[in-house]
Amino acid sequence: MPLASAFGPNSISLHSQATSFHEAVTFAVGNLIADQAVTPDYLVDVIANLESLGPYFVVAPGIAIAHAKPSEFVLRNAWALAKFDQGVRSGSHNDPVQLVFAFCATDSSSHLELLAEFANWMATPGLVNSLQNASAESVIRNLL
């Protein structure tokens, strides 16, 4: 399944801790860097987005998707997830944020299928609850 394989070996962190949303986003994008899906410059773009547009990528209650435009800093299409048990405040209506996904795409067309699949996956009834309650990486891998 493409979505499952887009989550690399270092892409999922549980029981993460952050004192700010900025730090939480940095953590999730750090997983993409660890999987060599992006270079560290991608994080600079993501943080610039966060600072200029506000926490707009908090897309649903408790869920954020950190991302920036395709660029030379993206090496392959990939997803990552950092889960914050205590939740993090972003200043959004959807606080506290527990699930911080990070996403990167090499170009603006090839990743559409992957994103559509992600949207379908997230719209599955009960899925968000299962993700929020997951206490082991294997549980999340199985949900993929």
């Binding site: 987005n49 547009l53 707009y56 990528f57 897309v59 795409a105 990743h111 559409l112 949207a119 997230m122």
Partner: peptide, 13 residues
């Protein structure tokens, strides 16, 4: 969405 390639694509889908 901000870039037109992430959140907006999920919303469109």
């Amino acid at each position: 969405c901000g870039a037109g390639i992430g959140t907006s694509v999920l919303l469109k889908s």
